[in-house]
Amino acid sequence: MEAPALDLLKGTLDLLILKTLTWGPPMHGYAIAAAIRRSTDEALLVEEGALYPALYRMEEKGWIEAEWGLSENKRRAKYYRLTTEGRKHFRSVEKSWNAYSSAVAKLLGQRVAPVT
């Protein structure tokens, strides 16, 4: 019943978190983890514990900001929100990621060796 696990490429987790947060409202760590799990159809297996160092580092860098609040189940939870700077950063990373992944996809899709 284990899902096929793809190791996360370095920096991918940041990208996933930022992407999740671009959807709008501030989210706590658990919600972010759940969202990533849901939207990647559980294809990317995130060890949820690894999420937090990433969050803290991005907060340190100023891409996201955090605030304590009350959760749906009336508990104290830390909510993260994208900053303007974070949004900017996400766009540039997204662009280069797309370029990179399409290049990789193109390479993998080729049948014959390219003529040089």
């Binding site: 514990g49 937090y52 340190e60």
Partner: peptide, 20 residues
Amino acid sequence: RQFGPVTAPRAECVAVSRSR
């Protein structure tokens, strides 16, 4: 299980937030 190891991320988070 889903959370994975706790000690290392915890230490990392504490360190980041301390320096902050």
